[in-house]
């Protein structure tokens, strides 16, 4: 592998293993490495990639393939993809197998009941942290709060609300 491919591989393997609680937590580290340390792109380009990977369907962590592509073309994208997902997928696969094979017992019930409030707390935590990091001004906050209520208490299709969100921001910008 060329030095750039090795750098990509090592960077994303390491960061995926440090990404406790999801990929969003290591975004600042990815930005620092891609922009300041390795100079693969400008800060503006990184923000564009962040927006694309978040808005496009699929996991937001796919930003790594855009960074890989910018740094080293298609091989860079492929190496980044494998480095980001293979190690963590292997870990979760073995955790899931262990979990599946563990017999129904008092301790499994205890762990299951202990995990529920943690999972829900982390859901709120990552949502709130992303809100603080990415949303500025009245409209984005209003959209997030409104759609939180809509998703919690109605059966409205998310696709309709996503369209409303896009149109609302465009309308505000046009006025």
């Amino acid at each position: 592998m060329t030095p750039v491919l090795l750098q990509l591989f090592w960077l994303f393997t390491l960061l995926s293993m440090l990404a406790f609680g999801g990929g969003a937590g290591v975004m600042p580290d990815i930005q620092r490495a891609a922009v300041e340390q390795y100079h693969w792109m400008t800060a503006g380009e990184f923000l564009d990639m962040f927006a694309i990977s978040r808005a496009a369907p699929g996991p937001g962590s796919l930003i790594v393939i855009l960074i890989g592509q910018k740094a080293a073309g298609f091989p860079g994208a492929a190496v980044s993809f494998v480095a980001m997902f293979l190690p963590s997928c292997l870990v979760v696969h073995f955790v899931a197998r262990f979990w599946h094979n563990a017999a129904r017992s008092v301790w499994k019930d205890v762990v299951e009941r202990a995990l529920a409030p943690v999972a829900i707390g982390l859901t709120f935590a990552s949502g709130l942290a992303l809100m603080r990091a990415t949303e500025h001004g009245f409209m984005p906050h209003a959209l997030t709060v409104g759609s939180t209520a809509a998703f919690a208490f109605t059966r409205i299709s998310p696709l309709i609300l996503l369209a409303v969100g896009a149109l609302a921001m465009l309308a505000v910008a046009a006025l």
């Binding site: 927006a51 978040r54 808005a55 949502g127 992303l130 809100m131 990415t134 949303e135 409209m139 984005p140 906050h141 959209l143 997030t144 709060v145 409104g146 759609s147 939180t148 209520a149 809509a150 998703f151 998310p158 609300l161 996503l162 409303v164 969100g165 896009a166 149109l167 609302a168 921001m169 465009l170």
Partner: peptide, 8 residues
């Protein structure tokens, strides 16, 4: 806008 709704 879509990101804000998805957070919600």
């Amino acid at each position: 806008g879509m990101g804000a709704v998805a957070l919600g």
